[in-house]
Design a protein around this nucleic acid. Structure first.
Lengths: 340, 340
DNA sequence: GTGAAAGCGCTAACAA
DNA sequence: TTGTTAGCGCTTTCAC
């Protein structure tokens, strides 16, 4: 039911003061005499006054709201990141306006335009695409403070916070080498964003360093379906390598499922690793060895950078790569150092 | 970098017309001569004009934005629902402002106040608590159109869309009875919201009808951890019943994990069922028999009801319970009707 | 089809 | 400490 909205004037009249005083009393921005404060508070609650954030935002030209754009909210990695960011913002008295770009650069551009039009104070974004996202992200970064997380597009002057992908692949491949792996395939998304590129590069570099044979590099998208599909293709083409390294946990879960369907035993016949450590990676059959991202730290750092940017005009951009860790589970033979 | 914002006046000056004309040209609300349209469009793009949604919202007193409040965005059921709602809204030219209440009524009240202050056009909410959420939800429903989804609080005059929980439990228990189950436990969240209550009631009613012995009803929260914990308690207390019925998939995944740890075989020693059909329920060990919610339909109907409410002042509230379906997987012995 | 002008609800100078 | 006043940027009558 839409009731005729009660405005600050109604409260002012009832309290017998000016609207300015009501504003000051309710916001607590300027001192107000105790008696008046009492009057105003009474009047406001009596009338059920709840303020008009739009009018306030227009006048103050700030909304105390930060926009966040992620490629997907169905991916548990991003939902965890979103929760962390929301939590960090709350400490700073800000709200989060969340948008999903559905891995579509056009949708992403739309979301960015809309966030800028809505005058959010800043933006946290994990861009969809390494190049197709550039224009929109660069434009938005020119309008207001913007921090990229997890992924970044090149050619945009903005802060970035994410994980050290090279270090992550080093952890994974050192671990696999220790398990006696001599050949490995990499299942990833298409090379359309920075972290994917860095992971593929890391895979190539560290297999090279360790003398592990690169059986195959399959590029699709970050989904369970793609992991399943990629595995079917590999199985159709011949025997699997010693290990299948995946660029995220969803892909790895799909790989595990396809292996189970095909009667391929993990870890006996093949070792499988994921990336992100989403909650479900501990529950699969077998549980998944994976790279844990410090998403809480990523979120805190992103919010810190944004808050800093809200004050100053422009510092030189900060690129912060946080250190990942390896979670060893049964999909690579578990915690014991049993040789294969 | 915050550039001095370009306003409608800048565009008007450059195009040599009035601000009114610019507004009409850009919004397409009123007809404008082709020549002027061209001029204005040029000027706008030249200057990189992007409009001020706040000012527009204040003037038009509508934001074309709908707020959504869910208990958790970590729960895949809610993220799927959110994606569906977002998609449905997009068709209607509206945006979604998403908030998580983190299963906390106080946080929920905060979010609702904030959404109302931000003048969203309407609200879609899945309330945290059957009684503790009432005040805030009722207040918000008094301010603007509001639709409850999945769960509802009693005592609030608003539309509701969800699933028929009684029918769902009938599906589950008929299936289990067909598998020869004579005793069953129910693992759920505490009875603090409508759908939980209805699921427990459905469990009680249909076990009674089928002559299935109710071994235990354990109440905690909707999480993997609680499912694991509840199972450990049952195992500590004695042998498990023939089946463990869970109020959602997260709980069921926890139950499966605890069974695996304890060396209890599913489905040989015990049958397990979930609720929601989240993506990971097909990937667990064993894959989970579960109730599929028609979340796309729920979302579409919720948005339809909201759109209707935006026009009219008040219809009598609609309670829409959609029909669920059963997805049979290995955790209850799979699709075959192999008797136990 | 276009312009002038009023004003959405609020807050920040500036006076008093 | 409080009131008066002037807008924030936009849309929308109301004239022309």
């Amino acid at each position: 039911m839409t009731v005729g909205r009660v405005t600050i004037r109604d409260v002012a009249e009832r309290a017998g003061v000016s609207t300015a005083t009501v504003s000051r009393a309710l916001s607590g921005a300027k001192p107000v005499s105790p008696a008046v404060l009492e009057q105003v508070t009474r009047a406001a609650t009596d009338l059920g006054y709840s303020g008009n954030g739009i009018a306030s935002a227009l006048r103050r030209s700030r909304t105390d709201t930060v926009g966040m754009v992620v490629p997907s909210i169905a991916n548990p990695f991003f939902t965890a990141l979103v929760e962390s960011v929301e939590h960090a913002l709350q400490q700073a008295g800000r709200q989060l306006f969340l948008c999903s770009s559905r891995s579509d650069p056009a949708m992403e551009a739309l979301r960015l335009r809309s966030l800028v039009a809505r005058q959010v104070d800043g933006i946290v974004i994990s861009p969809v695409h390494g190049t197709l996202s550039t224009e929109a992200v660069a434009w938005a970064a020119g309008q207001l403070p913007l921090v990229q997380v997890d992924r970044y597009v090149s050619g945009v002057t903005s802060d970035w916070v994410g994980v050290d992908d090279d270090a992550a692949l080093r952890l994974v491949l050192d671990h696999l080498a220790g398990r006696g792996v001599r050949s490995a395939a990499f299942v990833s998304s298409t090379l359309t964003n920075s972290s994917t590129e860095l992971r593929v590069a890391g895979f190539t570099a560290h297999t090279g360093r360790l003398g592990i044979d690169v059986a195959e590099v399959l590029l699709g998208d970050y989904s369970i379906d793609w992991g399943r599909e990629a595995t079917r293709r590999m199985l159709a083409a011949g025997p699997l390598p010693d290990a299948v390294v995946c660029a995220d946990d969803l892909i790895a879960l799909g790989v595990l499922q396809a292996c189970a369907e095909a009667g391929v035993s993990v870890p006996r016949d093949v070792l499988v690793t994921g990336f992100d450590d989403i909650p479900y990676s501990a529950l699969s059959d077998p549980p998944l060895t994976t790279v844990r991202q410090p998403q809480d730290e990523i979120a805190v750092e992103a919010v810190r950078l944004l808050s800093a940017a809200l004050g100053t005009s422009r510092d030189s951009p900060a690129y912060t790569a946080l250190t990942p860790s390896l979670v060893v589970r049964a999909s690579t033979g578990g915690g014991s150092t049993r040789p294969r």
